[in-house]
Design a protein around this nucleic acid. Structure first.
Lengths: 137, 137
DNA sequence: TCCTAACTTGGACTTTGTCCAAGTCAACAC
DNA sequence: GTGTTGACTTGGACAAAGTCCAAGTTAGGA
């Protein structure tokens, strides 16, 4: 967390209270908030923060590689601060809950050259879907 | 195609000209249209078709398992009629082009029980990302 | 040919995200 | 400390994607 802010400052980030609050809201594991949720939580601490700033800051964090953008449902994008440890997502088809998961092997390796059609493939995102324990009942 | 309409009729679908046109627009492989694109192409054949009907019809086709909804970018959802042959997607980070691809093995098998957290996991969607031949230049 | 439940329509509305001109302030230099 | 300045923030307008609904139309069985 502090190291995140440190790292950003070293890269020339101007450390404003707004950016600090957004970074704090995104701290932790298994955090997958929408921009609106980030805004709501940030506004709880810094009431006058604007939606535009939250969108700007999230976009910058993504561009800097500190936060991942995940599109699991075609609705709002979600922001995942767990960017430095490779993982995939398990999404509940009932309630939309999201867990970080760690499958075996490298999903990229499963795509043979013949199936790459000349693309320079650099990443593979896996979304597992199913019902969570609560929604199974 | 005709068999699709047949199958739907057997399931009690009322076969209107609007639905027929939407189904026709979605015919083929490597088709990944947004709802708006489907509407534009459908309107070329049936000028008065409304956006609402296109959305309704696409939603029904998805619910019936005849069409897949893919959310590759957090923007508009895309609709993939190739629902009966398992495949994954390769997306160009430059221009957004999408290809159906067939990785080795079953991606579901890569998620060990210990990483399922009590979920009843039923599906795995993989999105490979990279630059297509045109965008690499 | 008639009837009716199912389907379609257009428009209003919501959600999610982007853009911009004007105002504010963090960080550096002194 | 104080001043300066370019980077950052703000609110509001706008755009894109999708949902909802009351009123009108129609496919398909009787």
């Amino acid at each position: 967390m502090t190291d995140l802010l440190e790292r950003l400052r070293e890269r020339g980030w101007r450390l404003t209270s707004q950016r600090r609050v957004v970074a704090e809201v995104l701290d932790g594991e298994h955090v997958h908030l929408t921009a609106d949720e980030v805004h709501a939580r940030a506004a709880a601490r810094l009431p006058e923060i604007s939606r535009a700033t939250v969108y700007n800051t999230l976009g910058e964090l993504v561009a800097l590689g500190e936060v991942l953008e995940v599109a699991t449902d075609g609705r709002a994008r979600r922001y995942d601060p767990n960017a430095h440890r490779a993982h995939q997502h398990l999404v509940c088809s009932g309630c939309g809950a999201i867990r970080d998961v760690h499958p075996n092997g490298d999903p990229l390796a499963a795509l043979p050259a013949a199936e790459r059609f000349g693309f320079a493939v650099t990443a593979a995102e896996v979304t597992y879907r199913g019902l969570c324990p609560d929604c199974r009942r």
